[in-house]
Simulated assay, not measured.
Amino acid sequence: MLAAYEGMWRELAVAVRKPAAGGTRIEDYASGEALATVRRDVRTMREAGTRANGRLGHEPKVTKMDPGASPPTATVRDCVDLKDWETTREGTPVPLPSGQPMRYRTTAQAEQWDDGRWRVITYTQHGEQTC
Protein backbone atom coordinates (compact mmCIF):
# COMPACT_ATOMS: atom_id res chain seq x y z
CA MET A 1 0.00 0.00 0.00
CA LEU A 2 2.81 2.41 0.83
CA ALA A 3 4.29 1.70 -2.61
CA ALA A 4 1.21 3.32 -4.20
CA TYR A 5 1.46 6.35 -1.92
CA GLU A 6 5.18 6.76 -2.56
CA GLY A 7 4.62 6.21 -6.29
CA MET A 8 2.02 9.00 -6.34
CA TRP A 9 4.50 11.39 -4.73
CA ARG A 10 7.33 10.32 -7.06
CA GLU A 11 5.17 10.97 -10.14
CA LEU A 12 3.86 14.22 -8.68
CA ALA A 13 7.47 15.39 -8.28
CA VAL A 14 8.06 14.62 -11.97
CA ALA A 15 4.89 16.49 -12.97
CA VAL A 16 5.66 19.69 -11.05
CA ARG A 17 9.15 19.92 -12.54
CA LYS A 18 7.62 20.39 -16.03
CA PRO A 19 4.82 21.37 -14.86
CA ALA A 20 2.57 18.87 -16.68
CA ALA A 21 1.04 15.55 -15.67
CA GLY A 22 1.49 14.15 -19.19
CA GLY A 23 4.37 11.74 -19.49
CA THR A 24 4.01 10.56 -15.89
CA ARG A 25 2.53 7.36 -14.50
CA ILE A 26 0.40 9.19 -11.94
CA GLU A 27 -2.72 7.18 -12.91
CA ASP A 28 -0.91 3.99 -11.85
CA TYR A 29 -0.90 5.27 -8.27
CA ALA A 30 -3.75 7.77 -7.86
CA SER A 31 -7.40 7.85 -8.84
CA GLY A 32 -10.57 9.77 -8.09
CA GLU A 33 -10.23 12.80 -5.86
CA ALA A 34 -6.48 12.27 -5.31
CA LEU A 35 -5.82 12.30 -9.06
CA ALA A 36 -8.01 15.39 -9.48
CA THR A 37 -6.04 17.14 -6.70
CA VAL A 38 -2.71 16.33 -8.34
CA ARG A 39 -3.93 17.54 -11.74
CA ARG A 40 -5.31 20.75 -10.22
CA ASP A 41 -2.04 21.46 -8.38
CA VAL A 42 0.00 20.89 -11.56
CA ARG A 43 -2.36 23.10 -13.60
CA THR A 44 -2.14 25.86 -10.97
CA MET A 45 1.66 25.76 -11.16
CA ARG A 46 1.63 25.82 -14.96
CA GLU A 47 -0.75 28.81 -15.01
CA ALA A 48 1.42 30.63 -12.44
CA GLY A 49 4.56 29.92 -14.46
CA THR A 50 6.17 28.07 -11.57
CA ARG A 51 8.11 24.82 -11.28
CA ALA A 52 9.29 22.82 -8.31
CA ASN A 53 12.63 21.11 -7.89
CA GLY A 54 14.46 19.18 -5.24
CA ARG A 55 13.45 16.37 -2.97
CA LEU A 56 10.42 16.17 -0.70
CA GLY A 57 10.99 14.37 2.57
CA HIS A 58 8.34 11.91 3.75
CA GLU A 59 7.54 9.84 6.80
CA PRO A 60 4.45 7.86 5.70
CA LYS A 61 2.80 5.43 8.08
CA VAL A 62 -0.24 3.25 7.55
CA THR A 63 -2.55 4.17 10.42
CA LYS A 64 -5.52 1.99 9.53
CA MET A 65 -6.14 -1.06 7.36
CA ASP A 66 -9.46 -2.69 6.57
CA PRO A 67 -8.68 -5.78 4.48
CA GLY A 68 -12.28 -6.99 4.90
CA ALA A 69 -13.81 -3.93 3.25
CA SER A 70 -14.96 -4.18 -0.34
CA PRO A 71 -12.59 -3.01 -1.72
CA PRO A 72 -9.91 -3.27 0.98
CA THR A 73 -8.91 0.18 2.27
CA ALA A 74 -6.03 1.83 4.11
CA THR A 75 -5.29 5.21 5.65
CA VAL A 76 -1.85 6.83 5.52
CA ARG A 77 -0.54 9.69 7.60
CA ASP A 78 2.60 11.45 6.44
CA CYS A 79 4.91 14.27 7.42
CA VAL A 80 6.05 16.15 4.31
CA ASP A 81 9.36 17.98 4.66
CA LEU A 82 10.00 20.92 2.31
CA LYS A 83 13.59 21.55 3.47
CA ASP A 84 15.12 20.33 0.17
CA TRP A 85 12.27 21.52 -2.08
CA GLU A 86 12.14 24.79 -4.00
CA THR A 87 9.53 26.47 -6.16
CA THR A 88 10.83 28.82 -8.85
CA ARG A 89 9.46 31.20 -11.47
CA GLU A 90 11.82 31.81 -14.40
CA GLY A 91 14.66 30.44 -12.28
CA THR A 92 13.99 32.77 -9.34
CA PRO A 93 12.99 31.17 -6.01
CA VAL A 94 9.39 31.77 -4.94
CA PRO A 95 8.97 31.98 -1.17
CA LEU A 96 6.52 29.68 0.60
CA PRO A 97 3.21 31.25 1.59
CA SER A 98 3.43 33.02 4.94
CA GLY A 99 2.65 30.63 7.75
CA GLN A 100 3.51 27.52 5.69
CA PRO A 101 5.56 25.24 7.94
CA MET A 102 8.57 23.46 6.45
CA ARG A 103 7.13 20.17 7.77
CA TYR A 104 3.39 19.55 7.59
CA ARG A 105 0.91 16.68 7.84
CA THR A 106 -0.90 14.95 5.01
CA THR A 107 -3.45 12.15 5.04
CA ALA A 108 -4.48 9.79 2.28
CA GLN A 109 -7.01 7.03 1.73
CA ALA A 110 -6.22 4.13 -0.58
CA GLU A 111 -8.13 1.21 -2.05
CA GLN A 112 -6.94 -2.14 -3.32
CA TRP A 113 -8.53 -2.73 -6.71
CA ASP A 114 -9.47 -6.01 -8.37
CA ASP A 115 -6.08 -6.16 -10.11
CA GLY A 116 -4.47 -6.35 -6.64
CA ARG A 117 -2.84 -2.94 -6.90
CA TRP A 118 -3.40 -0.15 -4.43
CA ARG A 119 -4.39 3.33 -5.56
CA VAL A 120 -4.59 6.52 -3.54
CA ILE A 121 -8.14 7.84 -3.84
CA THR A 122 -8.05 10.86 -1.54
CA TYR A 123 -5.13 13.01 -0.53
CA THR A 124 -5.33 15.99 1.82
CA GLN A 125 -2.59 18.43 2.72
CA HIS A 126 -2.90 19.85 6.21
CA GLY A 127 -0.46 22.71 5.64
CA GLU A 128 -1.41 24.35 8.94
CA GLN A 129 -0.49 21.23 10.95
CA THR A 130 3.19 20.95 11.71
CA CYS A 131 4.86 17.64 12.42
Rank of each mutant, 00 (worst) to 15 (best):
A3D: 15
E6M: 05
M8K: 05
W9H: 14
W9T: 10
E11G: 09
L12R: 15
L12S: 15
A13R: 14
I26M: 06
G32S: 12
E33D: 06
A34L: 01
A36P: 00
T37F: 12
V38D: 06
V42H: 05
T44W: 00
T44K: 08
T50H: 02
R51A: 10
R51G: 01
R55Q: 03
H58W: 10
P60N: 10
K61G: 06
M65N: 11
M65G: 02
G68P: 03
G68Q: 14
A74V: 11
V76T: 09
D78E: 06
C79H: 08
D84C: 01
T88H: 01
T92M: 06
T92A: 12
V94N: 07
P97L: 00
P97K: 02
P101M: 06
P101H: 06
M102E: 15
R103F: 04
Y104D: 08
A108E: 04
A108G: 07
A110S: 14
A110T: 07
E111Y: 10
Q112R: 15
G116F: 12
G116N: 13
R117V: 10
R119V: 11
V120K: 08
I121D: 15
T122C: 04
T122E: 03
Y123R: 06
Y123E: 09
T124Q: 12
H126I: 01
G127S: 08
G127Q: 08
Q129H: 14
C131S: 13
